[in-house]
Write a protein that binds this DNA or RNA. Structure first.
Length: 479
RNA sequence: CGGGGAGUGGCGCAGCCAGGUAGCGCACCUGCUUUGGGAGCAGGCGGUCGGGAGUUCGAAUCUCCCCUCCCCGACCA
C-alpha cells in the first residue's frame, strides 16, 4: 500500500477558483457557482438553492430535526402571513423588525383593510396560539418547532449568509417558570445546536450570551453559537432566546397553577438557518473548493469509473452497491464521455469526502485508488477491502476537518487586556477580553471599527448565567 | 442614505477616446480522435450592445434624460 499526495503545482494552470488569500469574498462566490450550490434569485436578495446545495440543507434538517425532537419539541406549521397588528403587540419586537418587514397592502385586486406582514419570524403567531392552547400547568412546558421560510428585507444581501428570504427552523416554547425556560433555551443551544455543529458540521463553535446591544428584539437574554471562518471573521450559526414574560404579557399566555392561581408563562425561541450553509463553506472550504464533512455529506463517496475497460464498469457498480448496502451514501460516476481530470476536479469542487477511482490499471493489480478530499491523500487498496477502507477514511476525514478548524480558531484567538489590543487582534481573528475591561463603552468604540462582541463566556467556554468578574467578551469582525 | 465603479450572447470581457458589416475566452450543440488530474481538432447555435430621445447618410461608439446593478460606511439567523 503506497501513500501519495496530489500535487497541485502552482505554476501548472490558472486556478479554478479565485484563491482565498487573494480575495476571500470572490472565492466564496466562485465556490457557490462551481460547486453548483446556489444562484442569485431574480429579486435582489433572494437565492435559488440548487440540488447539490439543497441536498446539504436536507441533511442539516434531518440531523437538526432529530436533535430537536430528542429535546422534546414537536413540529407544527404556522402561516406565512401575519396581521400587522400582531407585530405591534410587543414594543421592542416591532421596533427591531420594522425596517426589514415586507408588507402586503394589496391582494385580491384591492387594498387590504389591514396590511399583512410576511413573517420575519413567528414569535407573535406562536404567542397568539400558545395563549389558546395553554390553560393549565399540566399543559406546560409546551415545546414547538417549525421549519419554514422567513423574509427580512436586506440591504446588503449575500447568498446563504444574509438573504432577504431564507429557510430555517424556529422553536417556540412556553414554561411555568423562568428557570425552566432558561434551562430549556440553554439545553437547545448545547444539545441540539452545538452538538450538531461540532459533531456533524465539524465546526468548533463557541457558545455564550449576547450583550444587550446584540440581543434579539424582545428577548431578556440571547445565547448564540459563533464560528470562525477561514478568513478569521465570525459567523453567528444559531441563537437561542429567553423571552421572559414579554410575549406572554403581549399575548396573554397564562395558566392556572396547582393552587388555582393565574400565572404568566415564560417563553423561549431559538433558530438556525440556511446561513449554516455559508458557514460550512467558509469554515472548511479551501482553494480546491468545498470540503464537506462526511457525517453531513449527502454524497459521501463517489466511485469514479476511469475508463470502462476490462470489466472496470461492473466492478465500479458492484462497489457502489456494496457501499450502499453498508449504509454509505455512495454515488457512481460512470460518465466516461468526460475526461478523468475534469470529473475528479468537479467532485473536489463539490467537496465529496472520499473518491474511489476504478480503472483497468489498478484492477490488474486487484486494487482501486482511494482519495480523501480533506487532506488530498491517495491510497491504493485491495478491491475486496474497499468498503472497510472507505469507512475508515470517512471517520478520519470527519475528525481531521474538526481538528483543522479548531487549530485555526485557536491560532487566531488571543487574550488581550485593552480595547486597543482587541481592535488590533480582531483584524485577523478573535480577541478575548474581560467584559469588565471592555464594557458597553468599549463595545461602542469597537463598533465604530466594525468590530462586535460576538458573545460573552467564561474562560472555560461555558455560558455565563450572570456576569461574574471572570466573564470574557469574544470580539471579532463578523459576517 | 453618503462616497467610488459598471451596464455588450448563459458567465467573464474587448470594442467607445479618433462613428462605417458586433468580436474574443469559457460554456453549449454536432462529428472524429481521446480518457489514471481541468482533453484536442474541425464545424456550429446564440446578442434589437440597460431604456428613451437627439445629432448624423450611418450610433455599441457622440449629446441629453431615465433605469438598474456592483463595491465601501449605520441594522440582522
Amino acid at each position: 500500500m503506497h501513500i501519495a499526495r496530489y500535487d497541485r503545482s502552482p505554476m501548472a494552470k490558472a486556478p479554478i477558483l479565485t484563491p482565498q488569500a487573494e480575495d476571500f469574498p470572490r472565492w466564496y462566490q466562485d465556490v457557490l457557482a462551481k460547486a453548483e450550490l446556489a444562484d442569485n434569485g431574480p429579486v435582489r436578495g433572494t437565492m435559488v438553492i440548487r440540488p447539490y446545495g439543497y441536498g446539504l440543507w436536507e441533511r442539516m434538517q434531518a440531523e437538526m430535526d432529530a436533535r430537536i425532537k430528542a429535546c422534546g419539541a414537536e413540529n407544527v406549521y404556522m402561516p406565512l402571513f401575519i396581521p400587522e397588528s400582531y407585530l405591534r403587540k410587543e414594543a421592542e419586537h416591532v421596533e427591531g423588525f420594522s425596517p426589514e418587514l415586507a408588507v402586503v397592502t394589496h391582494a385580491g385586486g384591492k387594498e387590504l383593510e389591514e396590511p399583512v406582514v410576511v413573517r420575519p419570524t413567528s414569535e407573535t403567531v406562536f404567542g397568539e396560539f400558545m395563549a389558546k392552547w395553554v390553560q393549565s400547568y399540566r399543559d406546560l412546558p409546551l415545546l414547538l418547532n417549525q421549519w419554514a421560510n422567513v423574509v427580512r428585507w436586506e440591504l446588503r444581501p449575500r447568498v446563504f449568509l444574509r438573504t432577504t428570504e431564507f429557510l430555517w427552523q424556529e422553536g417556540h416554547t412556553a414554561h411555568a417558570t423562568r428557570q425552566d425556560g432558561a434551562a430549556y433555551a440553554h439545553r437547545i443551544l448545547i444539545e441540539a445546536y452545538r452538538d450538531f455543529m461540532v459533531d456533524v458540521l465539524a465546526m468548533p463553535v463557541l457558545v455564550g450570551v449576547k450583550t444587550r446591544r446584540e440581543r434579539f428584539a424582545g428577548a431578556i437574554n440571547t445565547m448564540a453559537c459563533e464560528a470562525m471562518m477561514g478568513d478569521g471573521k465570525a459567523l453567528q450559526m444559531g441563537t437561542s432566546h429567553e423571552l421572559g414574560q414579554n410575549f406572554a404579557k403581549a399575548f396573554d399566555i397564562d395558566y392556572l397553577d396547582d393552587a388555582g392561581q393565574r400565572q404568566l408563562c415564560w417563553t423561549t425561541s431559538w433558530g438556525t438557518s440556511t446561513r449554516m450553509l455559508g458557514g460550512l463553506i467558509m469554515c472548511h472550504g479551501d482553494d480546491g473548493g468545498l470540503r464537506v464533512p462526511p457525517r453531513l455529506a449527502h454524497v459521501q463517496v463517489v466511485v469514479l469509473l476511469v475508463r470502462d475497460e476490462d470489466g472496470a464498469g461492473e466492478t465500479a457498480q458492484r462497489l457502489v452497491d456494496e457501499l450502499l448496502a453498508a449504509g454509505v451514501r455512495a454515488r457512481l460516476d460512470a460518465h466516461t464521455a468526460a475526461s478523468f481530470g475534469r470529473r475528479a476536479t468537479d467532485w473536489e469542487l463539490k467537496g465529496v469526502p472520499v473518491r474511489v477511482e476504478v480503472g483497468p490499471r489498478d484492477l490488474k493489480a486487484g486494487q482501486v485508488t482511494l482519495v480523501r478530499r480533506d487532506d488530498g491523500s491517495k491510497v491504493a487498496v485491495a478491491v475486496e477491502t474497499t468498503a472497510a477502507a472507505v469507512a475508515d477514511a470517512l471517520q478520519a476525514a470527519q475528525a481531521n476537518l474538526l481538528a483543522l478548524a479548531t487549530a485555526r480558531r485557536d491560532e487566531r484567538t488571543e487574550t488581550v487586556a485593552t480595547v486597543e489590543e482587541a481592535a488590533e487582534v480582531a483584524q485577523r481573528g478573535f480577541a478575548r477580553i474581560r467584559w469588565s475591561a471592555l464594557g458597553e463603552e468599549g463595545e461602542s468604540a469597537l463598533a465604530a471599527k466594525a468590530i462586535t462582541v460576538r458573545c460573552l463566556q467564561h474562560p472555560d467556554g461555558s455560558v455565563p448565567s450572570e456576569l461574574t468578574e471572570d466573564v470574557e467578551a469574544v470580539v471579532a469582525r463578523a459576517y
